[in-house]
Design a protein around this nucleic acid. Structure first.
Lengths: 198, 198
DNA sequence: GTCTATATAATGATAGAC
DNA sequence: GTCTATCATTATATAGAC
């Protein structure tokens, strides 16, 4: 088996080590407050060496965001593809997975997508709004669950907003308390969500 | 009636005009990404003139934060002082007021307290953590409401975290949708909260 | 790809005239 | 209290040797 480029220096490619260092720093200090020198220092290289892997600082941010949202969006795709599930079951599973990830992931990186400087930088670079994608996923499942439950009196869009607030609100809780217990909170959030849609 | 200092230039003191300009800019661009020059430009003065009113940039932030949290913390004090109310009623009113303020306030300024650069700057300047104060207020009311309802099987601290997430989650919703309708969302959130505690 | 050296630009803050 | 002028620092990014 030939040695890949990814095996150099601790088995991860320099590019991936940059992304991981940036993930931690962006999460804990914010994007604008993190300098390219901070990132390079943590990786163990010189600041200009970053530019062998990324054209500009914002390109590092794009990769961090991408790797953050992929798991949850992938799960949504899987849940929708599984036709044996009801919308209510799909919603329950997505909520529980999402809350666990938000609580127990290595860094509170989901906050990044809400930082003003990131959103402004994002617009300037035309990067994908994964947060909006995920919101649409919730919207589909909440509408479906309300329909299944015959809750025709409920406003599906208002319910979607409240459900999504409840889940993503965990991001803010984690800012004040970095050691959230996903195993305890995920079922509690799931039950609160189910109480709204059935 | 003698003219006050606050009457100069549009009836608001220069200091207050700086605070209001900074509130908008910090809310829309973030703290680190807002320069003192940005603030001065919006006020219509030169950048060094800011330093006649504030010793350092972070002192402007302290004032912005103070004016943001004061109304909600004041309401909590009022609700607790009113002995004719049950804990459940106090919680319902606090939630509804809070959500309306988060949705309909002129700027999404509550996000500020969650920005990493603000929290780090805050620690360095020893500024008060109003977000934590407010959380304790919710904790008191959620515990009281669960006790009143005889919900001895519920975990009050978990419920507090979920309730607070639901309310503050509106901050994140507003990032994606700046035109939230507090009149529609506040009752929906209130009912979701009440479903958890009674 | 990483390094040293450096360009270029912007930032927070100060000094001192008015 | 506001101004002009300016300082000291720090930031992103580039050039070119190895």
């Amino acid at each position: 088996m030939p040695e890949t480029a990814a095996d150099h220096q601790g088995r991860r490619s320099a590019r991936q080590r940059i992304i991981e260092a940036a993930t931690e720093l962006f999460s804990t200090r914010g994007y604008a407050a993190t300098t390219t020198r901070d990132i390079a220092d943590k990786v163990g290289i010189r600041q200009p060496s970053l530019y062998s892997h990324f054209k500009v600082k914002a390109d590092i941010l794009v990769e961090v965001e991408l790797q953050t949202f992929r798991p949850t969006l992938d799960l949504f795709a899987t849940l929708v593809a599984d036709e044996s599930l009801t919308a209510l079951e799909r919603l329950a599973r997505l909520v529980e997975f999402d809350v666990r990830m938000l609580c127990d992931g290595p860094w509170n990186v989901a906050l990044l997508g809400y930082l003003p400087e990131v959103r402004n930088e994002g617009i300037a670079h035309g990067m994908a709004d994964h947060g909006h994608e995920l919101y649409q996923a919730y919207r589909v499942l909440v509408h479906g669950a309300l329909t299944e439950s015959g809750r025709s009196e409920a406003d599906p869009d208002t319910t979607t907003e409240v459900v999504f607030s409840l889940v993503d609100g965990m991001i803010l809780r984690r800012v004040h308390n970095p050691r959230l217990d996903g195993g305890r909170l995920a079922p509690a959030v799931r039950e609160a969500v189910l109480a709204m849609v059935r």
